[in-house]
Each structure stands twice: as C-alpha cells, then as structure tokens.
Design a protein around this nucleic acid. Structure first.
Length: 485
RNA sequence: GGUCCCAUAGACUAACGGUUAGGUCACCAGCCUUUCACGCUGGCAGUAGGGGUUCGAAUCCCCUUGGGAUCACCA
C-alpha cells in the first residue's frame, strides 16, 4: 500500500513550531517510504478565520524546505485540499450516517446545551443528554421533518452507544482503549453547514487515501470518536501515530507568552533553516544518540516512528542557538550573503562588496550565533569607530606606547603585502627589536584599529580592512590623543 | 473533577532483560592563544518512589506520586 500522509493545520494565524515538527515528521516519514505528503487546510471554523493565514503557512513550510505533493497550491487527484471547499461532501456523509441511524438531527440552542451540561444527569453525566434534549430521537420523525422543512437551524450529532469498548493501535503508544460511555455525542455537522473537525478529518483522510495519520498528542483523546466514525462508515482505519508535545520550560504545551512560537519569528531572528529543522527533528527522537548534527537526508534515512519518544520535549532555545552556531560555522557564504548584505545596508546605510562581506563573515562566524550579530560585534569593520573602550585603553596603553606606535606606523607604511603573514612577521620582528613580546604591542594596535578589546585575529582583521584604512585609523588615534582618557 | 497519555541528570536524548547507564546543551575547571570566541581535555549531574516477575530490571507487570493533554455547534 502506498504511504500517504498529511499535514492538516488550521489557518488561524501562523505556523506554530509544534506544527512544523508535525509537518517535518510527516515529511520524513513520507520520504523514507517513498510516499506522498498532502497539505490540507482545515478551515471549518469560520469564527477563527485569519486573513493570509494560508499563505503564511505555505511560506513557512517552503522556508523550512518541507515539500508536499498535493495541496491547495499543488493540484492532485484528491482535491480540493481546503475543507471549506468540500462542504457538500461532508454533508453527504453526515446524512448517510443519519440514514443509517448512526447520527441524528438536533435543534438545541447553545443556551439549552449549556444549561444541560450544568445539571449532569444520571446516565449521561455532563455529556449531551440525547434523551432529554430537542432532537430527532425525542421529537420523533414527523416532528423532525417538520422542523427541518421550516428551515430551522440544526446540527447532526454522532450516536454513541453505551458500554462498548473502542480501541486502536498507536504506532508510538501501543494499544489505547476507551469506553464509549466516556464519548460524547459529538456534533458532526454544525448549524452553519460546516463540519466539525472530527467529521471532516475522517472523511478527508478516507477520501484522500491517507495511510498514516501522524499528528500531535492533543488529538489522542478524540481519536476514539474518529475510530467510531470509521467503523460506522465501514472504512479502513488508517495507522495512527500521536507525537509527543513540544513544551515550554514549565512543561506546559508550547505556547506564546513564554517566547516565540511562530516559525516566521525564528526565521526573522536569523536562524538558519537547516539548523532549525535539525533541532526540531531531535525534539522527540534521535537517530543514533551519539551526535546532534544530521543532514536532512540522514534524518530521512534514519526516520522511524516507532523510535519516537512518548514524553513531551521542552523547547530549549539555548540548544537551538548552539545548533545554529554549528551550522553557521560551516555554512556556505552564499546562503547568508543576502542577509548580511541587507543587515549591514540597513545599519550603516551602504552597500558592501560581496567579497568584503565574505571575508568579514569568515572572520566572525565562529564568534556569533546569528549572522546579524556580526554587524554589531564588529561594527568597526563596516564604518569608522564610534566608541573606544576606555578600560581597555587604560589597561593596555602604557607610557611609551605612543612612541612605539609612531615607529610601527612606519613599518606598516613599508609593507608591500598588507596581509596576515607579512603583518605577523613584521610586527613580531618589530616587537623583538624593542625587546618586547608580540602581546605587548598587539593590544595597542587592536585599540587603534577596532576600539574594542575583543575581536577576530588582529592581523586577519587588518588584512580585510586594508592598509590605507589601518594606517588612517592609527594616525587618527595618535593625532587626536584618543589614548588620553 | 472524568477520561486518556507520559516519566533516564536543569534541558534534549541513547541503551536485543546482562553496559563502570553512553552522547549533546547548559554549568564548572584546565589547555590552546594575540583579545574574544572556536576547539581540545576533564568535571558536576540521571533511571520519581514502592512492590512484584526474573539468575539478572532503566527496560516487563501492579500500585503510589508527579507531570501533561483533553473533556465546544475550536481545530
């Protein structure tokens, strides 16, 4: 049987990182088994529609590199892939159930239902009391027909029997059993003509020939309802795999409040797509347990639903940062060129040469978590120094330094190859000639050229900045007696 | 509260019923050094508790405790 999985988000805003993880696992599973992945939009709640949400969702998935074979923007045999465009289908199946006596019409108002739930009954508890409310069962066929004919609002509810055991096998959790006594007569078709999630997802998964339903653990409690529906329709039940939740630091379900949860926020913050995917994939699973960095191909190759953890995983930004740093160190400059160019342009109002940016990036990529950080920790690479570290000057600019530097400038003026090796040997030679160590002299150089106490290797830095600029900064420093603090 | 799910260090995780319980982040120390990083070496720290089953349990079973999810005409 062909493996067909789906990612079925509701377009209520942006793609949640938990959703991305679910999408990723679906994707890995599909790729691993040479199957198909479907993107289906579950927009059956008209009260929660958000503009552009679908585009946002798709953009985030695209950014993450999660490709699907069928979806709203990718025609397939089983469309449409947006539930609000499939209303007739759901209605037809809801009526089929009514026909079979496995579902029924109900006409209660929300106030009546609220009232009913407050007064729990002997046999139904707080569940919908189908024996005491206004519905097809209590009103009778004739009255029901009359009400329907009058155009009155109605819903269709699932008829759940007493004392049956519903069980299903979850790939990650094993067998799960629930008594039908704990299952409510769920509404299948709402009064606005839209289906509820439960009806829509079962109908669609069947019609779209979904073989494996891989979704978040929050769906586990309602899965028995879905199983009941499959049985009522006489359809084959897909395999289920309920993924562990992504958690906040306090172990509650990952949510806003405690930081970003929208994928696009992470993207904007500057996380590399590959790093983010790598990190997310390892929340709930590890292919080998002996390393942390895996390429997408490796993730696909090793993916195994049965080895996915059962417990929820805390989303640890600190580790995410570390992973991002790992990727940053080995990333090809082309992948970050655009961002660093954009950020520096914005910050310093000028477009920098790509070759120059490449050099700067290589100088600092091991010192930052994000590309954009480079423009702040190494702002002196992009513009004149706007602030000198006074403490550093006091500590390293000793009496006599000025005279030494004036001599050093002459040495540098005579450099033909103003690059690392020559600068290094010439400076060492110079220091030695004065009976000093390189360390004694390199700090003042750093002060004059960068203004900061920290940075990349001094000679590499000078090489990138160039002879003219370095000499200019040194003379400026001396002439303006900046060391006088 | 009912139902369901879960439980290896602060966090993410590995471990055919047989390992000195392994790796990673964070943290601490040292090394490297031209500052800061990177890197390297070492360290701290874990099977929630109690019963079983077994020659042997992190692993299987039960109970307790703890955590989470879910109980809508939301998904």
């Amino acid at each position: 049987m062909e493996v067909r999985v789906r990612f079925a988000p509701s377009p209520t805003g942006f793609l949640h990182v938990g959703g991305l993880r679910t999408a990723l696992y679906n994707y890995l599973f599909a790729r691993k088994h040479n199957g198909k992945m479907i993107l289906r939009i579950e927009d059956t709640d008209r009260t929660r529609l958000v503009e552009n949400a679908i585009d946002n969702l798709i953009n985030s998935l695209k950014w993450a590199g999660i490709e699907y074979n069928e979806g709203p923007d990718k025609a397939g045999e089983y469309g449409p892939y947006i539930q609000s465009e499939r209303l007739d289908i759901y209605k037809k199946y809801a009526l089929e159930l009514v026909e079979k006596g496995l579902a029924y019409y109900a006409f209660d108002t929300s106030d009546e239902i609220e009232e009913m739930r407050k007064n729990s009954s002997e046999t139904f508890g707080t569940k919908y009391n189908r024996e005491a409310m206004r519905n097809q069962l209590t009103l009778g066929e004739d009255e029901t027909k009359k009400i329907l004919a009058s155009g009155h609002d109605f819903v269709i509810r699932l008829m759940v029997p007493f004392d049956h055991e519903v069980s299903f096998n979850d790939i990650i959790r094993g067998e799960v059993k629930v008594s039908t006594n704990d299952i409510d007569d769920q509404v299948l078709l709402k009064s606005d003509g839209f289906p509820t999630y439960h009806l829509a997802n079962v109908v669609d998964d069947h019609l779209m020939k979904i073989s494996h339903v891989i979704r978040g653990e929050e769906w586990l409690p309602s899965t028995p309802k879905h199983v009941l529906l499959y049985n009522y329709f006489g359809w084959e039940i897909p395999k289920f795999a309920h993924l562990p939740l992504l958690l906040n630091k306090d172990k509650s379900k990952l949510s806003k409040r405690q930081g970003s949860v929208a994928v696009e926020d992470f993207r904007e913050k500057g996380y590399l797509k590959d790093a983010f995917i790598n990190f997310i994939a390892l929340l709930g699973w590890n292919p080998t347990g002996d390393r942390e960095i895996y390429s997408l191909d490796e993730l696909i190759e090793y993916f195994n639903l049965e080895k996915v953890n059962k417990g929820g995983a805390v989303f640890d930004v600190q580790k995410l940062d570390w992973v991002n740093q790992q990727y940053l160190k080995s990333v090809n400059f082309n992948e970050v060129a655009k961002e660093i160019s954009l950020v520096s342009k914005e910050k310093f109002g000028k477009l920098y040469d790509s070759e120059f940016l490449n050099k700067v990036f290589n100088l600092f990529k091991e010192r930052v978590t994000f590309v954009s950080e480079i423009t702040s920790i190494a702002d002196y690479m992009f513009s004149d120094i706007n602030e000198f570290d006074k403490d550093y000057i006091q500590k390293k600019w000793l009496p006599g330094t000025e005279e030494i530097v004036i001599e050093l400038i002459k040495v540098y003026e005579n450099c033909n190859n103003f690059e690392h090796d020559e600068l290094s040997s010439k400076t060492k030679e110079f220091a030695l000639g004065l009976g000093k160590k390189l360390g004694d002299i390199i700090h003042p150089i750093r002060i004059m050229i960068t203004g900061k106490s920290t940075g990349a290797g001094m000679f590499e830095t000078m090489e990138v900045l160039g002879k003219t600029e370095c000499l200019k900064r040194m003379s400026y420093f001396i002439q303006n007696k900046i060391y006088d603090v």
